[in-house]
Simulated scan of single mutants.
Amino acid sequence: MFNETMVTLQGRVGGDVVLRQAGGAPVANFRVACTPRRLDRATNAWSDGPTQWYSVSAWRALAEHCAASLHRGDAVVIHGKLDMRTYINKAGVETLDVQLEAMTVGHDLCRGTSTFHRARAAQAVPGPAEAAAA
């Protein structure tokens, strides 16, 4: 992860988590909406800024845990590697997509409560020496 841009996002899950297989590994994809709130000191009133959308991908065990744990509207905190890609959308306009490859994902406990269930360790897979001895 040398010279990778690492960021932490705080926001809400914007839709259903989609779990699929890619290259033999599970990957979960979902979107996160981050809307900044600012206090206008002159009026002492809060106002929302423009919502920023991020595409998130999580791999392997984290992907499966995200699919089992996250739902639309959940408040989350995500830490991972930031990547930006451009593409041409259906209207022919070049669009910037900001993507995050998640390293860690959790519910934002400033916004609610959560219950943790420890994942069970996977069955040990014998190595070549153990398989030959069996």
Rank of each mutant, 00 (worst) to 15 (best):
R85Q: 15
Q10F: 15
L70E: 11
C110I: 00
P128Y: 06
T95Q: 14
F30A: 07
G11A: 05
L19E: 07
A75K: 00
A67D: 14
R38Y: 15
H65C: 10
V76D: 12
A132S: 11
R118P: 14
T86Y: 04
R85L: 02
T95G: 08
A33T: 03
D40E: 07
T95H: 07
A102D: 04
A75H: 12
K81H: 05
R38N: 07
V18Q: 07
G127T: 01
Q99L: 03
D74Q: 02
T51E: 15
V56I: 14
G49C: 10
V98C: 13
G15L: 02
V32S: 04
W53A: 01
L39V: 05
R20T: 02
T8W: 12
M103W: 05
E101Q: 10
A75Y: 06
G49F: 08
V7S: 06
A61H: 12
G127A: 08
T104I: 01
A119R: 13
M84T: 14
L82W: 05
D97Q: 14
E130M: 03
T5A: 15
I78T: 00
R41S: 01
E101Y: 02
P36Q: 11
R12C: 11
T5I: 14
G127K: 00
V98D: 02
R20K: 13
T113P: 00
R111D: 11
T8K: 04
D40C: 00
H71Y: 12
A102W: 11
D48Q: 04
E64V: 08
I78V: 14
D16L: 00
R72M: 13
R118T: 13
R120L: 12
D16W: 01
T86M: 09
V32G: 05
G15V: 04
A102L: 10
D74S: 10
T35G: 10
P36I: 09
H65R: 13
L82V: 02
